[in-house]
């Protein structure tokens, strides 16, 4: 069984987000970019399944400008076998991404596709579900455990009240939650080896997909700042303030 994983290049999660002065978008000039953390978990899960003998090959796909090849190489260094880069000028919207990925699924016929549940830039949480719709496959979102048994993937999902376990007919689409695994660090020899792994570049036209805009970003603003509060000296003072000043207890 082949496993396909997707990776997105995003602002490193340690970097403080700044809005551009003209409020047109977030300022991404000269900031550190990284592999989306949820995508990193997806890569790790796929590599573990191959190491366990469940999968034979891990294919990593990313969409965006040439720079995303850096994140594909990171995934290759973590253990993925080969990469596919779909080159676009900017990072397309979720539905367009799902359409491009659906074509790759049709070409590669993976038994399992693992994606991060959301990217930490747009916070959309859409692509996996959309890909499942377009391919007509089963979906296991927000996974904290994935087991392959026979022709099914048993996926434990993080839901609001606790955990839910589903049996998904393979091929299946899975999106990762944080507790699925702890990704490994890439070793230096593996980083070197990753440079020689195959990486194929395609365009949306090669895949027969025409990208269309579904939304227009009008402006971006920083969130309302909270005013700094006061320090209280004792529990008694705290209770008094909550009762008489804030009136919340």
């Amino acid at each position: 069984m082949k496993i396909m994983v997707t990776v997105k290049r995003v602002l490193d999660y340690n970097v403080k987000v700044r809005v551009k002065a003209d409020r047109s978008d977030v300022d991404l000039a000269n900031v550190k970019m990284a592999l989306n953390p949820f995508c990193e978990i997806a890569v790790e899960e796929a590599v573990r399944l191959r190491e366990a003998g469940v999968a034979t090959e891990v294919i990593v796909v990313s969409i965006g400008p040439k720079a995303v090849q850096e994140q594909i190489r990171t995934a290759l260094a973590l253990g993925a076998d080969r990469g596919i880069h779909i080159e676009t000028q900017s990072s397309p919207e979720s539905l367009s991404v799902a359409k491009l990925l659906a074509k790759v699924v049709a070409d590669e016929q993976p038994g399992l596709v693992i994606l991060g549940k959301q990217a930490i830039d747009s916070d959309n949480n859409q692509t996996g579900q959309m890909l499942a719709a377009l391919t007509g496959l089963s979906q296991g979102t927000f996974a904290s455990e994935v087991k392959i048994e026979g022709d099914e993937a048993l996926v434990t999902r993080e839901v609001d009240g606790g955990l839910q376990t589903l049996g998904l007919k393979l091929p299946a689409i899975v999106t990762t939650d944080l507790r699925l695994n702890e990704p490994r660090y890439a070793s230096l020899p593996n980083i070197m080896k990753a440079k020689k792994k195959p990486l194929e570049v395609k365009t949306p036209a090669d895949l027969g997909v025409e990208l269309r805009a579904h939304t227009e970003l009008l402006s971006v603003e920083p969130p309302a700042e909270r005013k700094g509060g006061i320090k209280v000296g004792s529990v008694a003072e705290l209770v008094e303030k909550l009762k008489n000043e804030a009136k919340v207890i």
Binding site: L11, V26, D121, D123, H214, T215, E216, L218, V220, P223
Partner: peptide, 16 residues
């Protein structure tokens, strides 16, 4: 809608 974990708020127009 919030983006970047609520560190920015985007105003977005739907074209659909």
């Amino acid at each position: 809608r919030p983006i970047y974990a609520g560190n920015a708020i985007a105003t977005v127009k739907s074209l659909d």
